[in-house]
Computed example of a mutant assay.
Amino acid sequence: MVFSPVIMVLKSPLGDKDIQMADNSFSDGVSSDSLEAAKNASNTEKLTDQVMQNPQVLAALQERLDNVSHTPSSYIETLPKAVKRRINALKQLQVKCAHIEAKFYEEVHDLERKYAALYQPLFDKRREFITGDVEPTDAESEWHSESEEEDKLAGDMKNKVVVAEKEAATAEEPNPKGIPEFWFTIFRNVDMLSELVQEYDEPILKHLQDIKVKFSDPGQPMSFVLEFHFEPNDYFTNSVLTKTYKMKSEPDKADPFSFEGPEIVDCDGCTIDWKKGKNVTVKTIKKKQKHKGRGTVRTITKQVPNDSFFNFFSPLKASGDGESLDEDSEFTLASDFEIGHFFRERIVPRAVLYFTGEAIEDDDNFEEGEEGEEEELEGDEEGDDEDDAEINPKV
């Protein structure tokens, strides 16, 4: 209704004065808010025009558009249907490759089982030396270290003094059986393990005599078992505590391209037969309760979970019923899998080097070397663009 006077004026052969009167009548029918909005829209258009005339703004906008247009997904969307069809065929081939890779890792597991049998006699002898059941021969005890070369440079006189001092010290030193606290020392040296060990766990771990890895039998689902062998002690009656890690070497049906080899999918612990009053995985607390009606107060005792390394043998179960775990549970389970893998791959095969700390130093040096190389490469990138262009012509 308010627009009709304008239309009529435009269509009529009136003069400028009449047109002005029509405009005024139109303004009278429009709210001040609408007029203000129209002014703001006009100002916005002017500002947009000014911004779009700025070459720096245009360059930044073009760069963003270029980046968006060059993403892999956006590029694939621009391809003809015939090309997309061929890409789908390549994906089918890739899935078949993933299944072949899974079979490869199954055979690797069989190979690990074969060589584990070859390692085991050496690990059995290691246990005998640690426990003191067998004393190594002079030939077995001979080891040439770098420090011996330094001693030779000092001359015969210095060597005689060193030998004399060693003989005197040996005569005074005690001769304990085997290598005391061998595995417990490894637990203290490795941060991943020491974080789990509480003060009241330490006396128990000093009774640990050996850790073994057992692989699943041929034809059985892929898995491995960690066996912790303990000497008789005052804490539990078990001679062996076990932890079984179940593995899968099969591409995920929902996401087959994520397959990167066997993965731990679940684990089972064992029951620890604690002696009376020795269970360190629980603690007894006292709690006061007030009767609602009579108002009397009584004190009760109850057992609650306690932090301990031996909770390692009562692991959280992976959800198998389709329900997802919460974030804390997922983190706990992932940490458990990582520890099990570390025992299997590093600690058990190289125990003596974790006892002496040499393996830990090697790991630290390797990580520092990687970081240093990365920093150096970053410096090269910032300092010499021409060299980068030569190395990577696509840049």
Rank of each mutant, 00 (worst) to 15 (best):
F224M: 01
D151E: 14
E227I: 12
P218L: 06
E165N: 05
E167C: 05
Q198M: 13
E167K: 08
E202A: 13
D210S: 14
E195Y: 06
S216F: 06
E195M: 14
I179W: 14
P180C: 12
E195F: 10
T185W: 12
D210P: 09
E172I: 06
D210Y: 14
F230R: 07
A171R: 14
N175Q: 15
N175D: 15
E165I: 01
F184R: 12
D210N: 15
E172P: 02
E202Q: 13
G178D: 02
K212T: 11
S216N: 06
G155Y: 04
T170N: 15
R188Q: 14
V161K: 05
D210W: 10
D217N: 07
A164N: 09
I204H: 00
L193Q: 00
K214G: 06
P221L: 00
F228T: 10
T170I: 04
G219T: 08
M192C: 02
F184P: 05
K212W: 13
A169G: 08
A164L: 11
P232A: 10
I186Y: 03
P174Q: 15
D210V: 02
E199D: 11
A168F: 12
A168K: 12
V190S: 05
P176E: 08
D156G: 01
F184W: 14
E181Y: 14
F215I: 04
A154K: 15
P203L: 12
A168D: 08
V213M: 12
K206R: 13
D210H: 13
M157G: 00
N159P: 02
H229G: 00
A164F: 05
P174A: 10
P221M: 01
K166T: 04
D201I: 01
H229M: 10
Q220G: 01
Q220E: 03
K206H: 01
S216E: 06
I179M: 14
D201F: 03
F184V: 00
F230N: 01
G178F: 03
T185K: 08
F230Y: 09
Q209S: 07
M222R: 08
E227P: 09
N159F: 06
H229R: 15
F182G: 09
T185Q: 11
Q198W: 01
L153C: 13
P221E: 00
I211H: 05
I186S: 03
M192P: 07
M157V: 02
P232F: 07
V197N: 03
A168C: 03
F182S: 09
